[in-house]
Nucleic acid binder design. Structure first.
Lengths: 159, 159
DNA sequence: TAAATATAGTGGCATATACCAGTAAATTTC
DNA sequence: GAAATTTACTGGTATATGCCACTATATTTA
């Protein structure tokens, strides 16, 4: 298994920077494999989630992605421009917009799926399949509203 | 301990998106506590690393941060503008620029350190101190060059 | 029901981060 | 030692992502 040999760094003490640093590297790794599709890994993830969600309202999609609503809006822009996703107005609540993949979006997603699978397979191979599953569960926990509440409730300076 | 209750999502299958999602949430959590300092958590991390590095060349700092050199350059811009860091030319190699904290940067770092410590303490409390250390080690591994090599070498589609 | 409030999204602005092309300086080749 | 190559950094451009202010709708209050 690969070994870390990084010198002293903030990431040795700060869980946030450790996560961010790993996230940058892993993003790069997936990104390189996705390159032939023309999609960024972030975009592929977003398309996947939109596909799973079947016309989810933007608000809910943002929550699922643990992303600011306006950030989601911005991130969707290039995908709309390229005709991969489209927004449809909700029938009952005119404030709500739902997102869905276009034909083209679906096609591109399908064509890219294999590349993502390769990336994920490589990760599992390098990191260990079971460790990989555990990691995803751990990350899901950190991303959960419950964790945020525990973090915010846990005042360490007083009480 | 907090529980995850997120519905089906890409992050259940994709380690990259799982990491990114957790990273967004954790970043938010730290960010909120750092807010009074006026520093983003990313900036605080960068200042910390610059402080640890004692006039590290940009190139090395970028590598340590697992960040593109040009991205680092851009990220430093607001910090230079605000007079927190400065670049000094290397004596022997005129291509090289080294980064260091200014007086002001040092002062702000010191004043912000307590806020970061509070955030880290809360994370440890919510996540578990030992789990937190393990997590940082795991993240360090994923961020290591060795892991990238293992990932890139591990072709799953052939061989 | 009219007024107050809450909700969903948009647009502007700022930072984070990557790639690419270009520049300048050092190193290697021949 | 001049030419070719490599290295370190900069600037342009594009996506990622957050905050705030604003608009349009809904919902709640009085």
């Amino acid at each position: 298994m690969a070994e870390s040999n990084t010198p002293d760094g903030a990431w040795n003490y700060c869980s946030n920077s450790a996560l961010k640093r790993a996230s940058r590297q892993l993003g790069q790794l997936y990104e390189d494999l996705l390159a032939p599709s023309g999609l960024k890994i972030t975009q592929y993830t977003l398309l996947t989630q939109i596909k799973l969600g079947r016309e989810t309202p933007l608000k809910l999609l943002a929550e699922a992605m643990v992303m600011d609503l306006s950030a989601l809006g911005h991130t969707l822009k290039p995908l709309q421009r390229d005709g991969l996703v489209e927004l449809v107005a909700d029938e009952h609540d005119r404030r709500v917009k739902r997102v869905r993949l276009t034909e083209k979006g679906n096609r591109l997603w399908s064509n890219t799926n294999g590349l993502w699978r390769e990336a994920q397979a490589r990760f599992d191979a390098a990191f260990g399949k079971e460790a990989s599953e555990n990691l995803r569960r751990t990350m899901d926990l950190i991303a959960s509203p419950g964790f945020a509440a525990a973090f915010s409730g846990a005042r360490q300076d007083q009480d």
